[in-house]
Nucleic acid binder design. Sequence first.
DNA 1: GCGCATCACTGAACCGGGTAAGTTGGGGGA
DNA 2: TCCCCCAACTTACCCGGTTCAGTGATGCGC
Lengths: 337, 337
Amino acid sequence: MKRPTIADIARRAGVSKGAVSYALNGQPGVSEATRKRILSIAQEIGFNANSAARALSGARARAVGLTLCRPARLLGIEPWFMGLISGFEAELGERSYALTLQVVATPEQEVEVYRRWWGERRIDGVIVTDIRENDIRIPVLQELQLPAIVIGGPGDTGPIAQIWSDDAGAITEAVRYLVALGHHRIARVSGPPGLLHTQNRTKAFEGVCAALGLDHSITIPADYTGEEGSRATRRLLIGGDRPTAIIYDNDVMAVAGLAVAQEMGLSVPGDLSIVAWDDSPLCSLVHPPLTALSRDISAYGAQAARELLNAIDGTKVGNVEAGRVHLTPRGSTAPPR
Amino acid sequence: MKRPTIADIARRAGVSKGAVSYALNGQPGVSEATRKRILSIAQEIGFNANSAARALSGARARAVGLTLCRPARLLGIEPWFMGLISGFEAELGERSYALTLQVVATPEQEVEVYRRWWGERRIDGVIVTDIRENDIRIPVLQELQLPAIVIGGPGDTGPIAQIWSDDAGAITEAVRYLVALGHHRIARVSGPPGLLHTQNRTKAFEGVCAALGLDHSITIPADYTGEEGSRATRRLLIGGDRPTAIIYDNDVMAVAGLAVAQEMGLSVPGDLSIVAWDDSPLCSLVHPPLTALSRDISAYGAQAARELLNAIDGTKVGNVEAGRVHLTPRGSTAPPR
DNA sequence: GCGCATCACTGAACCGGGTAAGTTGGGGGA
DNA sequence: TCCCCCAACTTACCCGGTTCAGTGATGCGC
């Protein structure tokens, strides 16, 4: 059973293909009566425009691309990406854009995928995550003139628009909160040091600790995985003057840290307070539930998608800051004993 | 800067468009010398075939679709889907098929998305997950003649191929293991009762419990979320003769159950043993690490993708069983006190 | 030397929408 | 009455690959 085309509609309506095209796209050039007739025939026979034909003439694929460059074992567990994705969808679905996904191992592969997608005209734009300092993808995107939005920053991405959340404000709030509880030795387990937002957070953390006169503050780099989170936590807790509070750059490492503390016989929050960055169901799943820096990741994703669609439409897109991050206190933070 | 087309290559090589097409696709009809010349020109100018044009004439979109129908807050945390997705990618990437994703709220929306995608010829086939009893998607897929592979089962899906893992064998192994440790009161917290594999697991669980003479076995239905997992666990642990072991249908509920036990002052595994279905980093992240029913989800996904590509190619595809599930004992199981 | 098969390639149609340019027919103004 | 204009279409070509029916040229057997 062949799928219907505009030619089928044209035949049944007794008009030309062109008229049908005008009618379906809301263009002027057909009378209201004819338009209604055509629309009802299209409805009746379940017509959907062939996206390939449309892309071929209109030069729009009506799809955007997303590459995920993280180890597979982390991808699964980290709520961050899925949160982002469902945010994208909310916005893309409304304009019936599709989302094309590719999991890759290295930034070099990401570049390759961008080139291929764009060469094939498979997508109209890409969403770029996990931006690094001097990211190799930026010059390629410029060279290809491929519409893009960068999630994360702020940083130097040339003419490519960025969207970021206020990491500095968030970490300042977290540190102040811990200090107000009476903590003086605060440590942080960070994400990969190459990532731009890790650097921004580290800078802000050091800044607020210096301002508050905390000499024992320290940042240990990790990579967002549970294993590294455990390792870093052990290193911190083994030492002589161990911290009384640790801030983790993601929820997975925070949960791993909690497990290490329990395994070492330390009480949370009695002996150690824990703050997780990015609130997810994971944080309220464990015992005690984790105090977290919350933001609406899905809304963040939706806004990113909106900006990208603007960039695709050729609207000038500036850099924007997404909704605020706020501290959600739960059972994992308390005054130190 | 316009992206190159085969016409550009043809001009530079001094041959016709047709010859270029044959050369690039490895078809006979051009000499080896000409083919080499054409390929090197293509390489040089960075040619990628326009996927829309290819889809339009060849009637292949070189993309497959996947809809995710779970609440957003669960999607993020459950490693299952991302594991599957990276498995798909491994297979699809090799044949340069793209994966198109859509997050939806209801099975009705899934049907709509299938219709639209297929009508638009945006995809060549779909991967169907979370299959239910009398799933409304099955007749639609048949009506549309849309190539598909169903993940989960076994169950009645008519002519549409299925792939499943041996749920019955796995749960039997878990129950036997717990019984061997000395447990007699074993409970289970299941996924949504509407899902086919939940039903298969429940039937198998009841079967093995009856065979081993366990009278106190009980299955409490839940929905894979942490909240429901907590609720079900509380219900089980509040009663007078509470179970000494609980098997959870996914890792998220198992972690939630562990937190509930800790919160109620019960020791795991001393007072309560816990088994999680599907091993993920989440299971080794918590303290104590969870005993789990492991399977290679990524390989499962790869196999599903392979079967789907066969179905798209018109190869007859039968129902297949994926790799084995095995029990990975960790700290959350022990003989009851 | 002739006929025929084979090779290497060309030219044109085709896929299904989008759209610029051309063609009606009817109404209004001078 | 004539002319012009405009709405409401139609026609025809475009997008960029794929594919099929030719078309010379060459080789081969007899």
